[in-house]
Design a protein around this nucleic acid. Sequence first.
DNA 1: TTGTAGGCGTTATCAT
DNA 2: ATGATAACGCCTACAA
Lengths: 333, 333
Amino acid sequence: MVTIKDVAREAGVSVATVSRVWNDAAFVSPETRQRVSEIAARLGYSPHGAARSLITRTTHALGVLLPDLYGEFFSEIIRGIDHTAQADGYHILVSSSHDSKDEIDAALRSMRGRVDGMIIMSPDLEAQRTLHALQGSFPVVLLNGGAESKAFDTITIENHEGASAMVRHLVQRGHRRIAMIAGPERNYDAAERLRGYRSALGESGIAPDPAFVLAGDFSELSGHRAARAMLALDPRPTAIFAANDSMAIGALSALREAGLRVPEDIAVAGFDDIPMARYMNPPLSTVHVDISKLGERATTLLLSSLQNGERPRKQLQLATNLVIRSSCGGPVS
Amino acid sequence: MVTIKDVAREAGVSVATVSRVWNDAAFVSPETRQRVSEIAARLGYSPHGAARSLITRTTHALGVLLPDLYGEFFSEIIRGIDHTAQADGYHILVSSSHDSKDEIDAALRSMRGRVDGMIIMSPDLEAQRTLHALQGSFPVVLLNGGAESKAFDTITIENHEGASAMVRHLVQRGHRRIAMIAGPERNYDAAERLRGYRSALGESGIAPDPAFVLAGDFSELSGHRAARAMLALDPRPTAIFAANDSMAIGALSALREAGLRVPEDIAVAGFDDIPMARYMNPPLSTVHVDISKLGERATTLLLSSLQNGERPRKQLQLATNLVIRSSCGGPVS
DNA sequence: TTGTAGGCGTTATCAT
DNA sequence: ATGATAACGCCTACAA
């Protein structure tokens, strides 16, 4: 490996001079600069990142900790983050932790000294406590982490508003027996979406029926199962609202297998508006979230706190909007 | 920030001892080990990654350079890579370069000293030359990079075989006028898939019609455009084979907009079998590629070369298989 | 079993 | 305008 010393020796200058040339510092004669550049290029020199960040105390890398890497939701997030980071010359160091305290701890440890800050998506409510240990130690942005954590910059989706808007829409279309496939109990987004569902029912004067709420785990399979269980209910719901699109998609296939027509026999709606949603058959009505923008804004937040140093924490919310397609019968007539 | 010195001072031992405790080295008395561990935990100490890798000459990170981060193909690749890397205690440093020589150069530079090896996906044939500069300098696995590069470990998809199998299937279903929406001209996978298409036509004694080959850029939009253009042809093709699923999906929507039935009026097939494919209407026939496995195997290859040091380069191929759904009319009767 | 000290590759500080 | 040299935080001979 060719180091700064090799270049210095070859050029007959000191390492300090090479360093200055490399960093475009002032006070290097044009001739020296020229000669050193040429030799560096010829030798294929480029500085050693770790060594550099040891002294500069900056890595130009952002840590990204996600609960999972599966599915379009996460890939869109990463895309948003990477895009924004790269525009500012930052790399991203990705890690997925399955939400357990220990795994999060391990990930945080192993990123120490390798990143300038972190974006952590940890919707598990338990895991929040782990994070409190970090408070203020170094720049962190929490993604969908529950806004209680005023100690951090956070960005969350308007879960409650989105969910209740969708339920209101279903009510307006004449549904009274609206079931919900909820997400994991300990998940922040899931809890908020469920809360939105309930409050919309309340507003509409519909008594909530506990039998109409089944929990899934955000996977397609769990949506499929929940929908099947709901078909066994009597009376049967006339609409199913899933806490995310994957589960809604699972529900759609369960309904098809059961020989039911959507939306004629039963309406279906999801949440997130992953790219796949509009290709469903019928196209899936859902609550649109600009997922890659979620990643973008988290990154912007993090970069701003890296560059501006201390400043009051910010709590951002990302707006949602209804996307009515045919799986719920289309717009209100 | 708490360093090894702080822990040493607090524990009344030397930094060497703390280091030994941390790395589970032998020859530390149980009492000392215990005391140091406790203090380290209390102080929230964890070693500084950059400093550590400077001396150990290892980062436990893998660089991943992709041409893009958009769409299910890339997200599946990342998932496969991260999963395998994490199992061995490695992190991944992600970067997307838009395939230009300069961008690739920049990415490589900035990763120096931050990663132990790299997985580079750079299907652009031009970019291959840049890579030759790297030869042997440090561990690299080329993903879909054209097997000519015997200087690297490579893993490629069986593009030629997959494409020709699909075309043969279409021929068996009675199609003679089979059009192809090809990928970018300078793209390796695209070129191989086109070659497979041509050789299958040849085998079947069908004269290739240049008007039946239109180039897209792997995006849905370009597939849409190409399909529209093909509808204007006279005689019109009876089947369209797209070089990837995204373009096939774009073609499907163009056909629907034109009021054509798939597969009755025109058959459609894609390549990759992204998760979305089976949800299309009608479900898309395609050449299945286990995309996340592609990432997995690339990572395995890289890790093995990190651990075993010098060994002969390996050239791997990932098998494909036909997935016949209804967009091409189903299996041969 | 533990401590001392040198060095990893780079930048920053002070000379000159 | 350039050079010597001390950090940065850690690991590892070697010494004790």
